[in-house]
Nucleic acid binder design. Structure first.
Lengths: 225, 225
DNA sequence: CCGATGGCATTTGTATACAATATTCATGTC
DNA sequence: GACATGAATATTGTATACAAATGCCATCGG
């Protein structure tokens, strides 16, 4: 990650995910180059990668903007993610080894630790959650599946919403992970697939509810951050 | 498609899909630049896009090679494609309009025409087939689904195998398209999804059988072309 | 006042030069 | 003879200059 184009990619990506670069903002290559302390060449490369990630949009005349995720875009992404992660879970269950099962259990223990802090450690939760899902994807053993899911997991608004998860919601995630672990222990692909589908779709509705609540409170998305 | 980087992308992509650049061949930026008549800059951009398409691989030290699709890679791609196109078919059935249905029927009529030539017009078949699947994807109305499928449809070896389809296999494709059209006419998403799954998986097995036959004949993949 | 037109400013695209890194091959040492 | 070492070579990464295109704004004509 020391190449200039990688630094530019991470920097711009983080600014988009954090909301520092708001949806709809124009991304001029020169301006970004200055921000990242590199020349336009690596910035251009970074922008193309972000375009493939669908984090930025380009107009017909080659101007680049921060992608504006409508609520239906988010729903679309979650629906596809549910299908793909469920497939990954099924494959993982069918190929599960005891060693991998131990890693999965460890990840979910770490996740529980993060939740049980006096103040829930959301960053730690997200990290363990990423680890948990990452192991499953690894065991599923499909490069393509991993690649496809790559563009679906990180969504700007959703990530920011995660910070507001209640302890109850975090606990629910942990419980679902435990159930997934049980399905893996039994090598039951159909069960794992079903739990994963419901796990992702529940997360989607948690987000959608929070989103609606903010709208009802008469706040704009910006103000709610 | 007049920008130099687009031309480079198409040129290199075609050389890979046609087999002119064989699997495993190293892709030097300078050499490709000369081949395409452009400088290294657009070639680099093209290579990044091809990497995202998984048509080329890069080593840990940034060297680029034509991706080598093992039979299990092909199986993996088909499995995912079946899942995603089936989902698209379901969504399309649920959103079908009479106007779109007419376009789908027209595409399949064109496909039948291509088949019924004295010598089956495989290029025409492939074109109509692309059109047929393209309309479904369009009606499915999910940018992400389209994007994900984009990297799965064109597979180097498979495309070359298509040339050897028998008239019987082509007819079978047409019949399955007809059945899909019936499901669309009824707006029956579950039916459309099931037919599409079986349509893609049958195509996969047709390829796998042909592949095996070539191996049994003691031919290398190259020699069989 | 509205819309079209032309030219200036800005932005993106491409080529090229140079820097950094990887590979190769010859050389020397054990 | 095998392996490590290190220059020579080849390849990729980045910066920059310039070309092409796009957008903006002022001016002009209706």
């Amino acid at each position: 990650m020391s190449r200039a184009s990688d630094r530019a990619y991470s920097a711009i990506r983080n600014m988009i995910l954090s909301g520092e670069l708001p949806a709809g903002a124009q991304l001029g290559e020169e301006a970004l180059a200055e921000l990242c302390g590199v020349s336009r060449t690596p910035v251009r490369e970074a922008l193309r990668r972000l375009e493939a990630d669908m984090l930025v949009d380009r107009t017909d005349t080659q101007r680049t903007f921060v992608a504006d995720w409508s609520i239906s875009d988010v729903a679309d992404a979650f629906e596809l993610r549910a299908m793909l992660e469920a497939r990954a879970a099924r494959r993982a269950a069918e190929r599960m080894t005891d060693a991998t099962l131990a890693r999965i259990k460890a990840a979910n223990r770490a996740l529980l630790d993060a939740i049980q802090q006096p103040l829930p450690d959301v960053a730690g939760f997200l990290e363990s959650n990423r680890e948990f899902h990452g192991i499953i994807l690894e065991v599923a053993g499909s490069r393509r599946l991993s690649a496809l899911l790559g563009t679906l997991v990180e969504q700007p608004v959703v990530l920011r919403t995660a910070r507001h998860y209640t302890r109850e919601e975090l606990r629910r995630s942990h419980a679902e992970h435990e159930e997934l672990t049980a399905a893996f222990a039994r090598r039951d692909g159909a069960w794992a697939e079903a739990i994963m589908t419901s796990h992702i779709l529940r997360a989607y509705h948690a987000y959608a509810d929070a989103h609606r609540a903010r709208l009802d409170a008469g706040l704009t998305q910006e103000a709610a951050e």
